[in-house]
Design a binder for these strands. Structure first.
Length: 448
RNA sequence: GUGGCUAUGGUGUAGAGGCAACACAGCGGGUUGUGGUCCCGUUAUCAUGGGUUCGAUUCCCAUUAGCCACCCCA
């Protein structure tokens, strides 16, 4: 490689040597991370506001938990052999020898908090919601980041099937109200015991046809047989139609519970699909499990799985608490954001009424005071005090589409006045500086 | 984690083995107190490292990152 060359440019017939810019290499984004830029915030606000609105309307209270937890929480809670723990956990050991992990999901932390703070002494059920970042060391892709944001609700201390239905409904409703049509796929995976029996039956079934399975599915047969059910391999797809179905293996209680969940869903008008092959990748689920899928994954939105949830009656006990029936859901906001972006929503513009322009240092000082007065009286104002040129300021005022510009220069300061410019008509008048707020309020129709 | 595709200003794109083009955005100006048009100027070590070559941004290799499929999931 050659050394940095001097860049020669012709200017006015003279050659000018521009110095070559150099410095330390810029630091980039950590792989799989994503900035949420100011221009994207309006859409994020839409989601945040909707999450707040709905969860509070349905009686949920906000909870925040630390991003860092003991690794054991997830090993025990989510399951040692799940992919989330086995290969996607951000884990490290501190100097003090603590084994910590960035949380890969929120259910275990919420249950941990429930136990830790003795929330079983609160009126049950305890209903909490969160918007929180989570971390999974997976290979990044569009809509799939190593830090991703989730919105979720959890109901702890209640096993009535109406809760399961309401949660599935709420997740569906959240997206519906944002304009995203989804379908809920739902299944019951019974109790851990019945699931173990089913697993055995499934392994027996597929083992007899092992030679026809893909390498990937052969691995699943050993590690996670339930997963063969949603394999994309055509051979497995075909075989699964003959395979034992989980409904035939779950106990009567679970079955009855599930039937009632479905009844409530019917009542709520949630479009759902019974999916006998739906199993979830976390160990703590029992009985009801569901996932949300976008109906229109038409555009290049490969990631149509927008969220999921279910019942986790055994989790509290696994984590050392008292047996506590519970259920919840979680939605991937990064993915929902992508869908919103794709929809070309009219984002309401932030409106500002007044631009305070200034000229010269005296004017600047007076302008600061006027701006503050306006702010205190509830008038939305903006400024560019760091700019000197009046032209630039008026230009900015125009771009912000303000109705009025207040201009304070040397002359006005001496006269104790300010120029009030109507930005639409371009007409301006000189007003007493002390009456500027009143004058603007009048023009904005805030005072009759 | 496995395989594939891609990589040019802030953004979107062109280009070709021989001085990197266009549009938009940004910033500065058009004689120092006023906007939307117009005009001018300015904004790129062509991802990083190496190789082939007289010469590489262009060809080759590696790395990194993004994307796609898989694994898995949100």
């Amino acid at each position: 490689m050659s050394l940095p060359k001097k860049i020669s440019k012709e200017k006015d017939g003279k050659k000018i040597d521009a110095p070559v810019k150099k410095g330390p290499a810029p630091i980039g984004l950590v792989r799989g991370m994503k900035d949420i830029l100011p221009s994207e915030q309006p859409l994020w606000d839409l989601m945040r506001d909707k999450a707040r609105e709905l969860s509070s309307a349905y009686g949920f209270e906000r909870i925040d938990t630390p991003v860092l937890e003991e690794t054991a929480l997830f090993v025990r809670g989510v399951g040692k052999l799940t992919d989330i723990v086995e290969k996607e956990l951000y884990s490290f050991e501190t100097e003090g020898g603590e084994r910590l992990s960035l949380r890969p999901e929120m259910t275990a932390p919420v249950v941990r908090a429930y136990i830790h703070h003795g929330m079983l002494n609160l009126p049950q059920p305890v209903k909490v919601w969160y918007i929180a970042p989570m971390f999974r060391h997976d290979r990044p892709q569009h809509g799939r980041y190593r830090q991703f944001w989730g919105f979720g609700c959890e109901v702890l201390g209640e096993e009535n099937p109406v809760v399961d239905a309401q949660l599935a409904f709420l997740g569906w409703l959240f997206m519906k109200e944002l304009g995203i049509e989804t379908t809920v796929r739902i299944n019951s995976i019974g109790t851990p015991e019945s699931r173990a029996n089913y697993k055995n039956a499934l392994v027996t079934y597929f083992r007899s046809k092992r030679s026809k399975l893909s390498d990937e599915d052969k691995k699943r047969l050993l590690k996670n047989p339930l997963r063969i059910l949603d394999s994309k391999d055509p051979a497995a797809q075909e075989m699964k139609t003959e395979a034992p179905q989980i409904v035939d293996w779950i106990n009567e209680d679970s079955k009855a519970h599930f039937m009632r969940v479905l009844e409530f869903l019917d009542e709520l008008g949630v479009p759902y699909q019974m999916d006998p092959y739906l199993v979830r990748g976390l160990d703590y689920y029992s009985r009801t499990v569901f996932e949300f899928y976008a109906n229109s994954s038409t555009k290049e939105l490969a990631q149509s799985a927008l969220g999921g949830g279910g019942r986790y009656d055994g989790l509290a006990e696994t984590l050392g608490g008292r047996p506590t029936p519970a259920a919840g859901f979680s939605l991937g906001l990064d993915r929902i954001f992508l869908h919103l972006k794709d929809m070309d929503l009219p984002v309401p513009e932030q409106t500002v009424d007044v631009f305070v322009a200034q000229l010269g240092d005296q004017g600047r000082k007076k302008a600061i005071a006027i701006f503050e007065e306006l702010r205190k009286s509830g008038i939305k104002a903006t400024e560019a005090f760091s700019k000197d040129a009046i032209k630039v300021q008026i230009e900015m005022a125009n771009r912000r589409k303000v109705k009025f510009a207040v201009i304070v220069g040397q002359k006005e300061v001496l006269d104790g006045t300010a120029v009030l410019r109507d930005m639409d008509s371009g007409t301006q008048e000189i007003v007493d500086a002390r009456k500027i707020v009143h004058e603007i309020q009048k023009k904005l129709g805030k005072i009759v």
